[in-house]
Design a protein around this nucleic acid. Structure first.
Lengths: 229, 229
DNA sequence: TTTTGTGAACTAGTTCACAGCT
DNA sequence: AGCTGTGAACTAGTTCACAAAA
């Protein structure tokens, strides 16, 4: 490590992490972790940024730069030790503990997400669904996630230690519901409702806007047609 | 329009569109369209970029620049005519016709997406689900989208005029399935499976990676904890 | 006057290329 | 030799600020 680290908590292994990490970077860290999981499953012990880039169609310099942001994990002349780097990435991404997740909205989408196997995989625990429809409350998803009254969101957030909320509610209620989520003390929201949500600065929202995605594809198709001869 | 337009198809109203439009721009066009829909529903006839930006928390200069890419839709001293701009955006995004969509994978997620009301809204028609499980084929989703054998994908793509495929299949089969989709002549794919897909240059893939989204939120939570005192 | 459309300035993000470590 | 970590160069994206139009 070069002498660029004047932070109060510098250490031999992991430098002071920078104040602002771009979301593009964190997204890539998650991708790198997935690649390393696959490599470790295949018994690969060590990998260079070059090899990683080629195998997964990434950019070697970018991999190095992203990783170097958080510490010196590589060994010159060798590359990265897969198991070691994987462990570091899991720690950086906060995956070295179970994170409890609630899904708000027990409609088609909410129920599907509750049973989505990809969610359970990397340390996320879906512990509750919430809805406001009487007939749904008390039921459970196919895989057994219980459906609670959204009026009990705050209480259950505390009791269950819920840290992330996934919003799968109809567009008109989304702002009202996210206000409830914020009031419950949840600081991270994955939003599937269309449109922007207003939240305080210390709450992070990631939105998956299916309409925007589809319309963007439509644009591409429309362009293609007029561009081709 | 200033004399910057040497394209073969220039016209008074819509300039030659640029060769490469950033995906960030097309995503914003879709957002603008949604805002305009809301304004028109509320009976607003005309709006300035300034007012649009304030109302929907956007940037006025960016709105103007994004729109000016495609033509001169505004009137100086006035702003934009809501109905007119909406019409233009719909045309630019290729929404001035119905687009037929197939969903591949009739699992929880695929079935939920097939019945998702947001999809039907802006001119998208979900006409088919595909799966390879015998017991699912011949059934239909709650809202009546029929489930076909994925072996018939090519045939039905032609017969039904399917232009967009939504991939909701398990990760291990995603590359195999997208190969089928490409072979059927589909040029636009919305992918919900984790991991990158390889497709020819003339096929557009948009991916929604739920694991990456959640892990990125986890990173934010982990940072917050260590940053706070 | 108001507001667009747009060069210019600025900011963010990516890739290059190489010194320096193993 | 091989490969990382990183300044420097480059590219993309955003915001400013103002001339020109209505």
């Amino acid at each position: 490590m070069k002498a660029a680290n004047k932070g109060p908590r510098s250490a031999a292994r992991s430098r002071q992490t920078p104040d602002q990490v771009s979301e593009l970077t964190t997204n890539r860290l998650s991708v790198y972790l997935r690649c390393l999981n696959e490599l470790e499953d295949n018994g690969v012990r060590t990998i260079s940024s070059q090899a990683l880039a080629e195998q997964f169609r990434l950019n070697a310099a970018q991999i190095r730069k992203d990783l170097a942001y958080f510490g010196e994990f590589g060994v010159r002349g060798v590359g990265y030790y897969v198991r070691n780097l994987r462990r570091h990435l899991r720690q950086i991404l906060g995956l070295d503990r179970k994170l409890r997740v609630a899904i708000i909205g027990a409609g088609n989408l909410g129920l599907a997400l509750a049973d989505y196997p990809g969610f359970q995989q990397e340390g996320f625990d879906i512990v509750a669904l919430f809805d406001n429809q009487r007939d749904k409350i008390g039921q459970q998803s196919r895989s057994g996630v219980p459906i609670y009254d959204v009026a009990d969101l705050r209480k259950l957030t505390r009791r269950e230690g819920i840290k992330i909320a996934v919003l799968a509610v109809p567009a008109p209620s989304s702002q009202r519901v996210v206000d409830l989520v914020v009031a419950s003390g949840i600081k991270a929201v994955l939003n599937f409702s269309p449109g922007a949500l207003q939240v305080p600065d210390d709450v992070k929202v990631k939105s998956v806007d299916l309409t925007v995605s589809l319309e963007s594809l439509s644009f591409y198709l429309a362009r293609g047609e007029s561009a081709e001869t």
